[in-house]
Amino acid sequence: MMMAAVRKSTNWFAIGITAAVVVVVLVVGGVVWFANSQATSPGTLPQSSAVNTETGAISVGAGEKTVDTYVDFMCPICNQFEQSYGPTLDQLVADNEITLNVHPISILDRASQGTQYSTRSANAAYCVAVDDASNIPAFVKAMYAQQPTENTSGLDNAALASIATSAGASDAVTSCIDDGTYSKFVTAMTQKTPVQPGQSGIATPTIAVDGTVLSNQSDLTGDPQKDIVGRLNG
């Protein structure tokens, strides 16, 4: 008695459904990856020889040693730091002893009634740096001279552009400021701010002397000769 061979038919419907599921998973995964990459992307990079696009530093001077300042233009303590330490830092730059790396960051947007003043003002600093980085010292000083108080709306874009041009920048910065060209870059660089010793989160001002991050609580005494010059020469 001959036995008929059993033939298995291919279930093309099931294979088609499986393939479709794989495609959907890949598409969803791609969308999630793209959304995450967009959220963490630094956006448009400020192209200037004075700007380090990896750290966000705007360099002033060309000294061998470094002082890094991480500042939020709405931070009143940053303004106090500028008044106390700024003249000494300016002299160290002028004497070619340091490169001053200014990091404009944004941690106080919550204190500007929804106008994102910290981000807008930091963006303006990069606009000035790209236009002509030699105007950054004058711009920073002018920003502190007209610093708005916390929990106000801050300066509008027209005022930021006026400060920038008064510091020597060209009119080209106006559109850069209005467009928020480097806003995403500001956000990305803010996340790279080093945490001070003993702290759990970033704060402003944060100061680093030759790469060593100082503590606002114990290392900044108000004496720039001791806190900055002494460490540079120590």
Rank of each mutant, 00 (worst) to 15 (best):
M3R: 15
A4Y: 14
R7E: 14
N11H: 12
W12A: 15
A14F: 12
V24A: 15
V27Y: 10
V27F: 12
W33Y: 14
W33F: 14
S37M: 10
Q38Y: 15
Q38V: 15
T40D: 11
P42C: 05
T44E: 10
Q47I: 07
S48E: 04
S49I: 05
A50F: 00
E54G: 02
G56K: 01
I58W: 00
V67A: 04
V67G: 01
D68R: 02
V71G: 07
F73I: 12
C75Q: 07
F81M: 10
E82V: 08
E82Y: 07
Y85A: 06
T88L: 08
V93C: 11
A94R: 12
D95H: 13
N101G: 05
V102A: 10
V102K: 08
I105H: 01
S106T: 11
G114M: 06
T115P: 00
S118P: 10
A122M: 10
A124W: 02
A138L: 11
F139H: 03
V140M: 08
K141G: 13
K141T: 11
A142S: 13
A142P: 06
M143Y: 02
A145G: 08
T149E: 12
E150L: 06
N151T: 08
S153K: 05
G154E: 00
G154K: 01
L155Y: 01
N157A: 12
A158T: 14
A159S: 01
A159V: 02
L160H: 03
A161K: 02
A164Y: 03
T165C: 08
A167R: 06
D171S: 05
A172P: 00
T174E: 00
T174Y: 02
C176F: 05
D179V: 04
G180Y: 09
T181K: 14
Y182C: 06
F185C: 04
A188S: 15
M189S: 08
Q191F: 11
T193W: 04
Q196N: 13
Q199R: 13
T204F: 11
T206R: 04
T206N: 04
I207G: 05
A208L: 05
G211R: 04
V213Q: 04
L214C: 07
L214Y: 06
G222E: 12
I228S: 06
